[in-house]
């Protein structure tokens, strides 16, 4: 085994295992954190770090083949849809009236002029457009 191949192997080892570690941390966070709003951030760890590192590690493992192209397509897709789905969940929770518990010493959440009965529809329209544009 040449030195370059050895470096590639070790690097992909590190990337895959650390990616799996972050994926596990994100899942652990959704299980452990106390309320919905903080759990959103834990899921975000799996969506960003875990996904990027795992895909990068597998890309290194497969070299320059069609497999890498497929991995990159999956990666780009998850890179765009992951935050969009998280935003959709958060937005739906906010519109339905769920509010985060503010930390002590901080002024309460910003007022929500758009969540009244009339405004909610127009606002939903914007969210849907954004989703369509991102996808």
């Amino acid at each position: 085994m040449s030195t370059a191949a050895l470096i590639q192997e070790v690097l992909s080892w590190v990337l895959v295992v650390s990616g799996a570690f972050f994926a596990l941390v994100g899942a652990f966070g959704t299980w452990r954190l106390p309320d919905f709003w903080s759990r959103l951030h834990a899921a975000s760890v799996t969506d960003s770090a875990g996904m990027i590192l795992l895909i990068a590690g597998m890309c290194l493992q497969s070299g320059l083949t069609l497999v890498t192209v497929k991995l990159i397509v999956i990666g780009i897709f998850l890179f765009i849809t992951g935050p969009t789905a998280t935003h959709a969940v958060a937005n739906a929770a906010l519109v339905s009236g769920l509010r985060p518990r503010e930390a002590e010493g901080l002024i309460a959440a910003e007022p929500e002029p758009l969540t009244v009965a009339g405004g909610a529809e127009g606002d939903a329209e914007g969210t849907r457009k954004e989703t369509a544009g991102a996808a």
């Binding site: 709003w37 959103l40 951030h41 834990a42 975000s44 760890v45 969506d47 960003s48 770090a49 890179f79 765009i80 992951g82 935050p83 969009t84 998280t86 935003h87 958060a90 937005n91 906010l94 985060p100 910003e110 929500e112 758009l114 606002d123 914007g126 969210t127 457009k129 954004e130 544009g133 991102a134």
Partner: peptide, 30 residues
Amino acid sequence: DLGQVIFANSITLTPGTITVETEPERFLVH
């Protein structure tokens, strides 16, 4: 619009901050 989508997705993609609501002039971030 594309720039705003990129900004909102960037906020959400960095763990610790999430765009909760998009309004014309401002985003609500948690």
